[in-house]
């Protein structure tokens, strides 16, 4: 086979994919989104009905996210993480995503430090809430709004 023919074979395979590079290009359908009330209900379930107190939780998020597919967040909870006083769980809730729950992190004194970092999807501009449940059952929370930009030719 000549070199030219070999080059051609490679190109033909590529041709199949150009312009149809997969489902990643499809926009999200406008399905029903959760409401802040539904997020509130989810939080009530976590806390056993109690309203989380402000404080002890630091939520780090960008004010503006370039793309809702990947928004990095960190949650840090002020806790000695001893047997007597530690963070049992951190819940991250995005109020107006199709499903408000993002992730739950289960901690213990084995962690030494109550801090996690992850990336999440945000369907639109909305408030993100981080709720920490302590060993004694008390709950604390922090929240922040994130503006999600939609690019003109996101692709």
């Amino acid at each position: 086979m000549s070199d030219r023919a070999l080059g051609r074979a490679a190109l033909t395979r590529r041709q199949i994919l150009i312009g149809t590079a997969g489902i990643g290009l499809m926009a999200l359908p406008r399905w029903a989104q959760a409401t802040p009330a539904e997020a509130q209900a989810a939080i009530a379930k976590i806390t056993g009905g109690a309203t989380p107190a402000a404080g002890r939780v630091t939520l780090r998020l960008p004010q503006i996210a370039e793309n809702g597919n990947s928004v990095q967040f960190s949650v840090a909870v002020d806790s000695p993480m001893t047997e007597a006083d530690y963070v049992k769980a951190i819940h991250v809730i995005a109020e107006e995503n199709p499903f408000p729950e993002v992730a739950t992190f289960y901690l213990s004194p084995a962690n030494g430090k109550a801090e996690v970092t992850m990336r999440m999807r945000l369907a639109k501009t909305q408030t993100v809430r981080a709720v920490a449940v302590m060993a004694d059952g008390k709950a604390f929370e922090a929240q922040q709004e994130v503006k999600v930009t939609i690019g003109g030719c996101g692709g």
């Binding site: 033909t12 590529r14 150009i18 149809t20 990947s70 690019g151 030719c153 996101g154 692709g155």
Partner: peptide, 27 residues
């Protein structure tokens, strides 16, 4: 981030051409 994956420059061409309502490039 919009693709949620790695992609080649030619994949980007495809996206741009689609936005431009132009024909895909024939290699």
């Amino acid at each position: 981030l919009s693709w949620e994956t790695l992609g080649s420059v030619q994949r980007q061409f495809g996206i741009c051409l689609k936005s431009m309502k132009a024909e895909a490039l024939s290699p």
